[in-house]
């Protein structure tokens, strides 16, 4: 054990191991040795407690009728009223459905498109071409939705945006109001999200493909397997564990329909089909001042997401032996 070397050897003391050390003694001895490690963690630990755990205490306002001037202690307790309202108000029910629909679409295409892309890219033999393609498709991932939102609003504009100019001249149809009609808005959300992320998401699959033992292909070749058969029976099974991991871990995002994206693209015209939980919480809390109701929705979302994350990690561990650390 290499770690033992780190311990200071007791010099000159005859071998006389105490029969039983008390827990406290052992703790003290350990602490004497490792205190620098605690010191190194301390700043990060304090900030985490302050900015991540203290707000969890603030979740009590989900059960109150919180008024800023009354504070946490004097605001009236209302129990589960806000949670009941959550399922009664037409707006909030609608928002939950929107979130589910948008995120399920994003997750299913967000996993399948990168897989297909990785498989196709793997067939490109020219290394220079492969690298150039990768450079271009990874780029949008690094630009924020503010920048891309600004670009998309311009490009998708109904008044002579680039996309509408292309489709009207190619197909001779009327310009499409991408960001102003509900169903087109959802489509735009899903397509633009895939457009931004598919390249970057493909990285793990490309890594998985690169990790497949080449002798498998050689053996298949000898047996006369076509390339298609090789992909079907070697490449895809080789990628399967990581596909399972990514797919299950995405379950934790089932209520994350992408706040940044929706917030930067939506407008009152598409609230009916495009408003999601996070944007609804934002408007309720910071624009209308319904702190308690907004917190209740946020808590509802956090709890469901937490359950899904824990469940998905267990699944990923069970089926693909994946661990976070």
């Amino acid at each position: 054990m290499s770690v033992v070397l780190l311990e200071k050897k007791d010099e000159g003391i005859p071998v006389q191991i105490p029969v039983q050390q008390s827990r406290l003694d052992r703790f003290k001895k350990g602490f004497k040795r490792t205190w620098p490690l605690h010191v190194l963690i301390l700043p990060a630990f304090i900030l985490t407690i302050l900015f991540h755990y203290v707000p969890m205490l603030g979740l009590v306002i989900a059960f109150q009728d919180y008024k800023p001037w009354l504070g946490f202690f004097k605001s009236e307790w209302v129990g589960l009223t806000h949670f009941r309202n959550l399922f009664m108000f037409e707006d909030s029910v609608n928002v939950i459905w929107n979130t589910l629909i948008i995120s399920v679409l994003k997750i299913s295409f967000g996993v399948s498109v990168p897989v297909v892309f990785a498989l196709l890219l793997n067939e490109v033999r020219n290394i220079g071409l492969k690298r150039s393609i990768q450079t271009l498709v990874y780029l949008p991932h690094f630009l924020s939705w503010v920048i891309l939102g600004g670009i998309l609003i311009d490009v998708l504009s109904i008044n002579g945006g680039l996309v509408n100019r292309v489709i009207t001249s190619l197909f001779g149809i009327d310009p499409i109001f991408f960001l102003g009609t509900g169903n087109w808005f959802r489509t735009t959300l899903v397509v633009s999200d895939i457009w931004k992320e598919f390249g970057f998401s493909a990285i793990v699959y490309l890594a998985a493909i690169a990790g497949i033992n080449p002798s498998l292909y050689e053996a298949a070749e000898v047996d006369g397997a076509t390339r298609w058969k090789q992909i079907l029976h070697i490449t895809i099974p080789g990628m399967l564990p990581i596909i399972v991991v990514v797919g299950t871990l995405q379950l934790g995002n089932i209520l994350n329909a992408g706040f940044d994206q929706v917030f930067n693209l939506y407008n009152p015209l598409v609230y009916r089909e495009g408003d999601i939980i996070d944007t609804f919480v934002y408007r309720n809390a910071l624009l209308e001042g319904n702190f308690s109701f907004a917190t209740a929705i946020g808590l509802f979302k956090s709890v469901i997401s937490f359950g899904m994350v824990v469940y998905s990690y267990r699944l990923a561990y069970k089926y693909a032996n994946y661990r976070v650390w």
């Binding site: 703790f27 755990y53 707000p55």
Partner: peptide
């Protein structure tokens, strides 16, 4: 020995958070 406790404290924040309003109030 403290390692795993610390890791859990940190990782838990990736899975659960107080949300927009409590953080804003803080």
């Amino acid at each position: 020995k403290g390692r795993s406790v610390y890791i859990w404290v940190f990782v838990f924040t990736m899975m659960f958070n107080g949300g927009l309003v409590p953080t804003y109030l803080l």
